[in-house]
Simulated scan of single mutants.
Amino acid sequence: MSNKLTHLDNQGHAHMVDVSDKDMTKRTARAQAIIEMKADTLVKIIEGGLPKGDVLATARIAGIQAAKKTSDLIPLCHPLMLTKVSVDITVLSETQIQVLCSCSLKGKTGVEMEALTGASVAALTLYDMCKAVDKGMVIKNVSLLEKQGGKSGDWLATEYKTD
């Protein structure tokens, strides 16, 4: 595996990588974001007591939409025909929620950025929908947890950090 940055040409100029000669393979990725908040904010999320409505459903849809629109947001990402995007939201403690975004496709380039974008935007949506009651929420540990497929093979984070 090369350490060369693939999005830079020999003069250091940014460009979109040509993937036309790459093989079509199944590719998957999973990423997370952690949102830390006041305990009473989390209770309101779970009980549906926030003025903007169903916070968790809205965050899930936002994460899915964001994963599908990654190439519109990140300049050198390829537009991809994702075949699956899921956003799972789990309560980790009385003050933390974990957002997991999983993406997959059969294609010529990986879906790591799509998973990271989906997790990030779902977390940002949670923040937006809860900021009226808790402006001090913190989004942290946005990270790739695993990827499968492609030329570089499989990769798994050695340690899943949630705090």
Rank of each mutant, 00 (worst) to 15 (best):
Q32Y: 01
G63E: 02
L42N: 00
P51T: 12
R30W: 05
K52N: 11
V91F: 01
S93E: 07
T41W: 04
I45N: 10
I46M: 14
I45T: 10
K68I: 05
E47V: 04
M81P: 13
D54T: 06
V43E: 14
P51G: 00
K69S: 12
I74T: 04
D88H: 09
L92K: 08
V55W: 03
Q96D: 10
S86Y: 00
P79A: 12
V43A: 14
A66R: 03
T58K: 09
D88R: 12
V19Q: 04
C101Q: 09
V19I: 15
C101Y: 07
K69G: 06
L80H: 04
S20Y: 05
S20V: 01
G48K: 12
C77N: 02
S102M: 10
R60H: 03
D40S: 15
D21N: 15
A59H: 03
E36M: 10
S102I: 00
I97M: 12
C101P: 07
D23V: 10
M81I: 13
G49T: 02
R27C: 05
T83D: 14
S20H: 12
T70R: 00
S102P: 00
C77G: 01
A29I: 07
D18F: 08
K68V: 01
T70W: 00
L82P: 06
D40K: 12
D54G: 09
E94I: 10
I34A: 08
L73K: 10
D21R: 15
A59M: 03
M16C: 07
I35V: 15
A62I: 01
I74G: 07
L50T: 05
I34R: 01
E36W: 06
K84V: 00
A31G: 02
V91G: 02
K26L: 13
K52Q: 14
I64T: 02
Q32W: 01
A66H: 00
I45C: 09
V91K: 15
A33C: 06
T70L: 01
L92E: 10
A29D: 09
A57R: 13
K52G: 04
I45D: 06
D23Q: 15
D23M: 09
H78D: 08
V87F: 07
V85S: 06
Q98R: 15
A57F: 03
K84R: 14
L80E: 08
Q65H: 11
G48N: 12
S102C: 11
L92A: 08
D18C: 05
A59F: 00
C101F: 07
S20E: 11
M16Y: 05
I74F: 02
D18Y: 06
M81G: 12
A62G: 00
K52V: 05
V87S: 02
D54L: 05
M24A: 13
G63R: 00
V55D: 06
G63N: 07
P51E: 14
I46C: 09
K68Y: 07
T83G: 14
L73V: 11
V17K: 11
D54K: 10
S86F: 04
